[in-house]
Design a protein around this nucleic acid. Structure first.
Lengths: 252, 252
DNA sequence: GATATCAGAATGTCCGGACAAAGTAACGCT
DNA sequence: AGCGTTACTTTGTCCGGACATTCTGATATC
């Protein structure tokens, strides 16, 4: 038989603030996440069983379970009935968030800039109207932008946004991302369904993106819904494959 | 002010089998999901409040909440404190699963076939070894396959699998997908981190995939971990962009 | 008439307890 | 020594209740 590896185990102690508006289960989850991320609790560690741990922290088992469940959902812990709860190797990236390219670049210090090529209110083309679940010919914002990072062109973006959600103007679109503006207008982005493909650049695209003719491009078509099921944005973007790729994390 | 749209509401009744090994909350969740998917409960419907509904179904509120939570996580319901729970427009696709191309094609009846181009045990190239968290030069399975759908070439796939997890041979790889074999060997695929990009085909790739020279290809690099954090597979694949795209759903 | 306050309704959090199911390991029998 | 059985540990499911927080709309006030 194989020798079972020693499984480190720590008697866990977490300070809780019962006067805080932050829920107790979330305080526990956050603190655990921090310790796992920093390596303070190394991968492979087995947590004490729920009953004991709840007792030690002065919490009820349901509350502690809620904290653990939160981390299991995020892929940081694994539970097995009859066995216990174990810390999984921390993964750098979270499951893809519903963020815009602008936010992504901004976060990693890539100095995003936007050049608004056109901004108009016009009838949505039929295929777009269909995806937006609007009757053909309904007027929507039509936005075409060029996104740059570190002053290098990165992507051509065409978006369609229904009227009435947010007031758009060139200045604001240049200063921040579309999603920031939507969120700022009280829209809660909830679900997006997207399709990622590839094709060669057209002559115009190659010119705009400073790529040679026939250069490979990544295409991304996305429909975004808010928390009440409305379509809030339809996007059709092309990225320079030489400078961009999609990173994502899947959980099973 | 805008006229608030009428919100349909249904007194809900779900038959429960308390002798079944299927948990009650899951019975409720499944039945609700079915009715939402079939349109029996249309989008926008507001559910009765949790207390009343739990009473009607003969369940406790925590149990009912567990069912609702499951569906909220899957993006089919939306909850708002002080307001209620509402049905979101059903989305065709679930958040991306950790499935292999073979399974995907099989499910939609695309008649997947695999031609094993080479299968060997060899030292992992350094970059691969690094991604697999193995010391340089460790021997692993090296697999090269051509995936066909409806007898048309679709993708070139190169995989690296550590030894000791599963015994691979050409026959079994031809008959099913790699992930099926791994799962069959008791490996629980848990988390994958992947990167999707694009580039032009090399001459050899173009030939194998029946594409013209310089055709755009989608590239996908993936590292898959199991439930105890081991790397179980590293894949580096190229797809014909003319015949394939990645579909995925994000939730925020 | 506009604003502030208040009551009602709904979900969010938390507790304590009970039994079931699954996996592990020790035990006892052959 | 090998094998099946049993006991134990641990998570999974379920119940009932209590109070907090947030949102909506009606009421009262200025």
């Amino acid at each position: 038989m194989t020798v079972t590896q020693p499984v480190p185990q720590t008697p866990l102690s977490i300070p809780l603030d019962r006067t805080s508006p932050v829920p107790l289960y979330f305080q526990v989850a956050q603190e655990l996440e921090r310790r796992i991320m920093t390596g303070e609790i190394p991968a492979g560690t087995r947590l004490e069983n729920e009953v004991v741990l709840a007792g030690r922290l002065g919490l009820s088992r349901p509350t502690l379970r809620q904290a653990i469940e939160y981390l299991v959902d995020r892929g940081m812990l694994v539970r097995k009935r009859g066995v216990g709860t174990q810390v999984v190797r921390p993964r750098v990236r979270r499951p893809v968030e519903l963020s815009s390219l602008y936010d992504d670049l901004d976060r990693v210090g890539e100095q995003p800039r936007t050049r608004v090529l056109s901004l108009a209110v016009a009838a949505a083309p039929d295929p777009v109207a269909a995806r937006m679940e609007l009757s053909p010919g309904t007027e929507v914002y039509v936005i075409e932008r060029l996104r740059l990072a570190r002053d290098e062109p990165l992507a051509l973006m065409r978006n369609h946004v229904p009227l009435g959600l947010v007031d758009l103007d060139e200045e604001r679109l240049s200063a921040s991302g579309l999603y920031q503006l939507l969120r700022g207008a009280g829209v809660t982005l909830k679900i997006a369904s997207q399709s990622i493909g590839a094709r060669n650049a057209t002559a115009a695209e190659a010119r705009a993106l400073d790529e040679p003719r026939g250069a490979p491009l990544l295409t991304m078509d996305r429909v975004v819904y808010d928390d009440v099921g409305r379509v809030v944005e339809v996007g059709s973007h092309v990225y320079r494959a030489s400078r961009y790729s999609f990173e994502l994390t899947l959980t099973g």
